[in-house]
Lab assay of single mutants.
Amino acid sequence: SADYSSLTVVQLKDLLTKRNLSVGGLKNELVQRLIKDDEESKGE
């Protein structure tokens, strides 16, 4: 998976916004949300 932890919070929020995901929470939560979304989209 992508190394989201190396991105800035601003970059993470931009990715979340593009996916229509919540941008609330700490950086670690944003990273986990993106990883979870990646895993769910692979399952389709």
Results as ranks from 00 to 15, higher is better:
Leu30Glu: 01
Gly24Arg: 15
Val23Asn: 07
Gln11His: 05
Ser1Pro: 13
Val10Thr: 14
Thr17Ser: 14
Leu16Phe: 01
Ile35Met: 11
Glu44Gln: 14
Ala2Asp: 09
Leu34Trp: 00
Glu44Ala: 13
Leu16Arg: 00
Leu26Tyr: 08
Gly43Ile: 13
Leu21Trp: 01
Leu15Lys: 04
Gln32Gly: 07
Leu15Met: 08
Arg19His: 03
Asp37Asn: 11
Ser22Lys: 09
Leu30His: 01
Asn20Ile: 02
Gln32Ser: 08
Thr8Pro: 05
Lys18Ile: 09
Lys13Gln: 11
Val31Asn: 01
Gly25Cys: 02
Arg33Met: 05
Gln11Asp: 06
Tyr4Cys: 04
Glu29Tyr: 02
Gln11Arg: 05
Ser5Met: 14
Ala2Pro: 14
Arg19Leu: 04
Val9Ser: 05
Ser1Met: 13
Glu39Leu: 14
Gln11Gly: 04
Val10Phe: 09
Ala2Ser: 12
Leu16Met: 03
Leu16Ala: 04
Lys18Val: 07
Glu40Ile: 11
Ser41Tyr: 08
Leu21Glu: 03
Ser41Asp: 08
Asp38Lys: 03
Gly25Arg: 01
Ser5His: 14
Leu30Thr: 01
Asp3Pro: 10
Glu29Met: 06
Gly24Cys: 14
Gly25Phe: 02
Gly43Asn: 13
Asp38Pro: 01
Gln11Val: 06
Asp14Trp: 15
Leu26Asn: 15
Arg33Lys: 05
Gly24Ile: 15
Lys27Glu: 05
Thr8Ile: 02
Leu12Asp: 00
Val10Cys: 12
Ser6Glu: 09
Val9Tyr: 08
Val10Glu: 15
Glu29Gly: 03
Glu29Trp: 03
Ser6Lys: 14
Asp38Met: 05
Leu12Thr: 00
Ala2Ile: 15
Ser22Leu: 07
Val23Met: 06
Glu44Cys: 11
Lys27Ser: 04
Glu44Ile: 14
Ser22His: 10
Lys13Ala: 05
Thr17Tyr: 11
Thr17Cys: 09
Ser1Asn: 12
Arg33Phe: 04
Ser6Arg: 12
Leu16His: 01
Ser6His: 11
Lys42Ala: 11
Ser41Met: 12
Asn20Glu: 06
Lys27Pro: 06
Leu30Met: 10
Lys42Glu: 09
Gln11Trp: 03
Asn28Gly: 10
Leu15Arg: 04
Thr8Phe: 03
Gln32Arg: 08
Arg33Thr: 04
Leu30Ile: 03
Leu34Tyr: 01
Leu34Cys: 02
Gly43Arg: 14
Ser41Cys: 08
Asp14Lys: 13
Gly24Met: 15
Arg33Leu: 05
Arg19Cys: 05
Arg19Pro: 02
Arg33Pro: 03
Glu39Ser: 08
Leu7Thr: 00
Glu40Cys: 11
Val10Asp: 15
Lys36Val: 07
Gly43Cys: 10
Lys18Asn: 08
Leu34Gly: 00
Ser5Lys: 09
Arg19Asn: 03
Asn28Met: 11
Tyr4Ser: 00
Ser5Val: 08
Lys18Met: 10
Gly25Val: 01
Gly24Gln: 15
Gly43Ala: 13
Lys18Asp: 07
Leu16Tyr: 00
Glu29Arg: 04
Gly43His: 13
Asp14Met: 13
Ser1Lys: 13
Ile35His: 07
Leu16Val: 02
Ser5Gln: 12
Asp14His: 12
Leu26Pro: 11
Ile35Tyr: 07
Gln32Asp: 13
Gly25His: 02
Thr8Gln: 04
Gln11Asn: 04
Asn28Tyr: 13
Asp3Trp: 15
Ser6Leu: 12
Tyr4Asn: 00
Leu7Trp: 10
Leu21Met: 06
Leu26Cys: 07
Arg19Gly: 02
Asp14Leu: 13
Glu44Met: 14
Val31Ala: 04
Lys13Ser: 05
Asp38Val: 04
Ser1Thr: 13
Gly25Trp: 02
Gly43Lys: 14
Leu30Gln: 03
Gln11Leu: 05
Tyr4Arg: 01
Leu7Ala: 03
Asp37Pro: 01
Lys42Asp: 08
Lys18Glu: 09
Tyr4Ala: 01
Leu7Asn: 02
Asp14Gln: 12
Glu40Leu: 13
Asp37Gln: 06
Ser5Glu: 13
Ser41Ala: 12
Lys42Ile: 09
Val31Glu: 05
Ala2Cys: 10
Leu34Pro: 01
Ser5Cys: 15
Leu30Phe: 02
Asn28Asp: 15
Ser41Phe: 09
Asp3Ser: 09
Leu15Thr: 03
Tyr4Gln: 01
Ser6Phe: 08
Ile35Glu: 08
Glu44Val: 14
Ser6Trp: 08
Thr17Phe: 11
Ala2Trp: 12
Gly25Ile: 01
Val10Ala: 15
Gln11Met: 07
Lys18Gly: 07
Leu21Asn: 02
Leu30Cys: 05
Glu44Ser: 13
Lys27Arg: 09
Asp14Arg: 12
Leu12Asn: 00
Thr8His: 05
Gln32Glu: 13
